[in-house]
């Protein structure tokens, strides 16, 4: 019991939680934007892989780190555009299209990686983002190590939470996105383009998802591995429901999951002799499912989620 308390009070635990949460924050925000406009994007898992691969490879080919981030976002946006074309004007099943995008994007990423590096056994490394050492603030007790020694991408993720919240809550664009996810007819009747709003939301959301992937290869690690995304995309899909489609709650959900994950790593080392390690690996997912079951009962789904809309059909 004392051990648990020690873990929860340690700076490294909270720093790790925030670090683990960062890709999830990008992913949840991306999925949230798509779903707020009424379209589920199950391509998220594959878009994570694309973002991880493109970001890493751009830097490996000689670009700067931010160049890699930009390329990752653009690649994600491109796959988002494909999903948008299939599901919005063509109105195909969002589930089928999304899963297809995940399979396609994952395979294309692996293929590209293997084609570029046919004969390497250990993945080549890049110089990743370093902790942003902010003078004075970094020296604060507790908060300093937790908050002010994260990389620039973590700060970008937190900034994105604010940005997405501001757009949804305070701008005409945000109102239109929320409206098109609730009742596309309301948007159409006011002379706005349902297709334009939805396609735009999916493209922007997918770019954010890809940043989550880029964080893995450019900040958390320094190389690209097969299977490194490891279901993070699916976790984001669940977290959106947990967050009730709100950016603030999305941040909270991602942090909660990050904390579960950081905790299981530490408990594993503390108590590994008593309990099989797999139990700890499962723990964050089991806890997420429990949290989701509780939260989803009162979830307020965007009413038009999953429903295609066609111009001229009322």
């Amino acid at each position: 019991m004392m051990d648990l308390l020690n873990i929860l009070l340690s700076e490294s635990f909270w720093a790790a939680s925030l670090r683990i949460a960062t890709p999830l924050i990008f992913g949840v925000l991306g999925a949230l934007i798509c779903e707020r406009s009424g379209v589920l994007n199950l391509g998220i898992e594959g878009i994570f892989v694309v973002g991880a691969m493109c970001g890493w490879m751009t830097v490996w080919l000689g670009s700067g780190l931010w160049g890699g981030v930009l390329v990752a976002a653009c690649a994600g946006a491109l796959f988002g555009l494909l999903h948008a074309i299939l599901t919005v004007p063509l109105g195909l099943s969002q589930h089928v299209s999304g899963l297809g995008i995940t399979l396609f994007a994952t395979s294309v990423s692996y293929f590209t990686y293997r084609t570029a590096l046919p004969n390497v056994s250990s993945p080549p490394r890049i110089e990743p983002f370093q902790a942003l050492d902010i003078p004075v603030l970094s020296d604060l007790p507790f908060l300093g190590p937790v908050l002010f020694q994260q990389t620039a991408l973590t700060w970008l993720a937190l900034l994105m939470v604010l940005l997405v919240w501001y757009v949804l809550q305070r701008t005409a664009l945000g109102v239109a996105i929320k409206a098109v996810g609730d009742n596309p007819d309301s948007v159409d009747a006011q002379g706005l383009s349902v297709y334009g709003l939805r396609i735009g939301a999916i493209v922007a959301g997918s770019a954010l998802m890809a940043l989550g992937g880029a964080f893995l290869t450019m900040s958390a690690f320094d190389a690209f591995f097969f299977g490194m995304v490891n279901g993070r995309g699916w976790v984001c899909i669940a977290l959106v429901i947990f967050a009730s489609w709100r950016p603030g709650k999305a941040l909270f959900g991602a942090l909660l999951f990050g904390a579960f994950d950081a905790l299981q790593v530490r408990l594993q080392t503390e108590m590994g002799a008593l309990v099989p390690g797999q139990i700890f690996l499962m723990a964050p997912y089991i806890l997420s499912i429990i949290a989701l079951v509780i939260a989803a009962r009162s979830a307020d789904y965007p009413r038009a989620l999953l429903t295609p809309w066609f111009k001229g059909q009322r």
């Binding site: 109102v175 609730d182 009742n183 007819d185 309301s186 948007v187 965007p302 009322r314």
Partner: peptide
């Protein structure tokens, strides 16, 4: 006839 209103705003 069927109101074109978004109910979440």
């Amino acid at each position: 006839q069927h109101f074109a209103l978004a109910e979440n705003i």
